[in-house]
Amino acid sequence: MTRLTAFTALVLSLAASAALAGGHCAAGKTLTEGKLTIATGNPAYYPWVMNDAPESGEGFEAAVAYAVAEEMGFAAEDVVWVRAGFDESIQPGAKNFDFNLQQYSITEDREKMVDFSLPYYSAAMAVLTRQGVVDAGAAPTVASLSGLKWGADANTTAVPMLQDLIQPQSNPLLYNDNTDVVEAMKANQIDAALFDLPTALFLAAVTLEDGVVLGQFPADRSENPDEFGLLMEEGSALKECVDAAISALTESGALAEIEAAWLADATGVPVIE
């Protein structure tokens, strides 16, 4: 009896490893055979990657990356991290990564130049401001918000969303990155800025001393949803495999678990009318 169980276990484990070795969809399609090269930003920001160290698997995107890698049949030690900014990712020519994740919003126009995976996160957009502005009467209504002086990170889809969702009365000022937006807010050059919710919550809690997240446009809004996807080279052979991995993670609830583990609960942030 014991022998039979052992035999069955042996057969099963053999079958499983054969399935892994033969069936995994990324075989021969990655930059380096047997390795999965993943790019992220330099630096990578909280709460997407903790301590700018994606190798640790800590932070939402770092955790998603390892989950996707596992689903595609790569062990954690087969994941290689590189850094690549947005410009490097969209330049024509060979890429130094299999996929790149750093809160890239999927848009139709971008799809023409690069490939995106299925979305791994739907971002609510949130209004970051300072206590002084709230005290001066700013409220989470579009009417009140449109009168503020706005800023945004120029390299994000927050720029068109600002126009679509809020329609500010004066022209917004645009900056290179989060740090510069916060600096301009400290210098009182702008009243408020539009970010994805996790970034806004982080900036309000850590970077901006009297920062307040005034309100959010929820992720499930019907117009202009902001969905993050893994970015791949146009026509990437890996896309199908990555998509399958993300579908599996979404269906099994693993993505939702990762989200709950790393991203703050946003139910306390008022919804903007």
Binding site: D109, L173, Y175, N176
Partner: peptide, 23 residues
């Protein structure tokens, strides 16, 4: 000057670059 906020030609081009993924 685009680095500190004003949306002049270089910044506007950067916004388009980002939205269209095109240089």
């Amino acid at each position: 000057l685009s680095f500190i906020g004003p949306v002049e030609i270089f910044r506007q081009a950067g916004v388009y670059k980002s939205l269209l993924a095109n240089f």
